[in-house]
């Protein structure tokens, strides 16, 4: 594994991923604010949650990029289209498995069966994150595809 190449491109790709998701919120593609979603695991404070969430998102980006890098090393090839393919798989996993499972993991997300409580008041994402806007899946897929393409295109195998 090329450590310095992984470190550099995982940071770059996570920056772009975060920016694409934030941008798609800005242009009304989705209401989903990923740093807020992640940060509220630790605090109800809206501002602090966003700050914690950004750090957490970067840690996630670095960890997930390790899986990409492992795949590149395993097949001995890192190309933009291979990265894109992994990004697509990851996006579907996030949408179909990760987001719907959040209410079970996140201490402040409300349960659809029981409704909100004093502690659990946050709107659950629903299947494919559709509760956060009907075009949420598109922004998640686009962001992860770009994430994978950057890693695949620029990571150099040693």
């Amino acid at each position: 594994m090329n450590f310095s190449s992984w470190l550099l491109w995982s940071v770059v790709s996570t920056v772009v991923l975060t920016s694409v998701l934030a941008g798609s919120q800005g242009i009304g593609m989705t209401r989903m604010n990923v740093p807020y979603l992640l940060g509220t695991i630790f605090t109800p404070n809206r501002d602090r949650a966003k700050f914690i969430g950004i750090i957490l998102h970067f840690v996630n980006g670095a960890l997930f990029s390790l899986i990409y890098v492992a795949a590149f090393q395993a097949v001995g090839k890192a190309t933009w289209w291979f990265g894109t393919l992994i990004g697509l798989v990851q996006a579907f996993f996030v949408l179909a498995v990760g987001l719907p499972a959040l209410p079970a993991l996140h201490p402040r997300i409300a349960n659809e069966q029981y409704g909100p409580t004093v502690v659990r008041q946050l709107e659950p994402p629903g299947f494919f994150g559709l509760h956060y806007g009907i075009r949420t899946p598109i922004s998640v897929i686009v962001a992860h595809v770009i994430f994978g393409a950057i890693l695949g295109g620029f990571y150099s195998i040693r």
């Binding site: 209401r31 008041q121 709107e123 806007g133």
Partner: peptide, 15 residues
């Protein structure tokens, strides 16, 4: 009202 997700859905009752 919320412009960002996850929205806060306030419970009623004592709150």
């Amino acid at each position: 009202y919320s412009a960002e997700a996850p929205a806060v859905i306030p419970p009623l009752g004592d709150l």
